[in-house]
Simulated scan of single mutants.
Amino acid sequence: MNGFSWAAFGQGIGGAAAAALAVMLVTFAVAVAKGVHRIVDIAWGLAFTAVAVVSYAVSADGGGDGARRLLVTVLTIVWGLRLAGHIAARGWGHGEDARYEAMLDKAPGNRNLYALRTVYLLQGVLVVLVSLPVQAAQYVTGPLGPVAYAGCALWLVGLVFEAVGDRQLARFKADPANRGRLMDQGLWGWTRHPNYFGDFCVWWGLFLIVCDDPVVAAATVAGPLVMSLLLINGSGKRLLERHMANRPGFAEYTARTSGFLPLPPRKRAG
């Protein structure tokens, strides 16, 4: 294992948890003041950024390879800030998200405290769990190998899918002629969720950066697995498609377009 320090890694998890909790609590305070809990979506990317920065700082004397530490930190920051900026711009000037409104309407008691328990604190826990490979990479002592470089390439594929898919959707929605229509152009003609597929690639790419040490990889594989479950069966693809199921043309769109992995569009029926 090339001298991987499990004790230092364990202490670093504590710092990562503190960073994620701080971001979520500050966001909660702002949300309560504004009366809009949708801003927690912005905190998702910011919390990962904070975890990466704190993990890099507290691991300075942990013996990890300097190039790997800097690489995984920068890649996480770039992804997190891009995502947070995109969500902030998308939600600017809008009221509460319909998903959170429906959830809070069922709150047994104080709506804000219910949101704190079921959204903010839960997301903080998920951030710490998903980012385990980023935290562990700070302590891997060996030099970057071919698998780590493959991880960088996969990360780049994911970031391109996210950024291009988000940009294409924003331009489509900005055109009044597309009002009431489903986006099925560009990357959205190859997969119904290019942004979620991009997230999937980003986090499996970051995981590959620790795979030069197979024992550490086995101990942190829960991170990308949890992210994959969230994207495909949790609050990502499944929830969004349930919300869109009754929209005109959605059934036809699903019939010709891959649900997750990018594939050439199937021929239209008839």
Rank of each mutant, 00 (worst) to 15 (best):
L240Q: 10
P224W: 01
V221L: 13
D213Y: 06
C201R: 01
W204M: 00
R242H: 13
V215N: 00
V226F: 15
R192P: 14
M227G: 03
V226T: 09
A222D: 00
D213H: 08
C211G: 12
H243C: 06
H193T: 07
P214C: 02
G236P: 14
N195A: 00
G236N: 10
M244T: 12
R192I: 14
F207S: 00
L225R: 04
G236T: 12
A218G: 15
G234V: 07
A217F: 09
K237N: 11
D213S: 06
D213C: 04
H193G: 07
D212W: 08
M244A: 15
G234K: 13
L208S: 06
Y196I: 04
I232P: 08
M227P: 05
H193E: 13
L231C: 10
G234R: 12
C201T: 05
L206S: 02
F197D: 11
S235R: 08
P194V: 03
L225P: 10
L206Q: 08
L230F: 15
P214L: 03
T220F: 15
K237W: 15
E241S: 02
L231Y: 14
K237V: 15
R242A: 09
G236C: 08
S228D: 05
L230T: 04
M244K: 05
K237I: 14
T191D: 11
E241Q: 02
G234P: 10
R242S: 10
M244S: 15
L225D: 02
A217Q: 07
L239A: 07
H243R: 11
F200W: 15
H193W: 10
W190P: 09
R238V: 07
Y196G: 01
V202S: 04
V216Y: 10
L225H: 06
P214T: 01
R238I: 02
G198T: 04
Y196C: 01
D212C: 09
L240F: 13
P194F: 04
M244Q: 14
C201F: 08
D212H: 11
K237P: 10
S228F: 13
G223P: 11
P214F: 02
P214M: 02
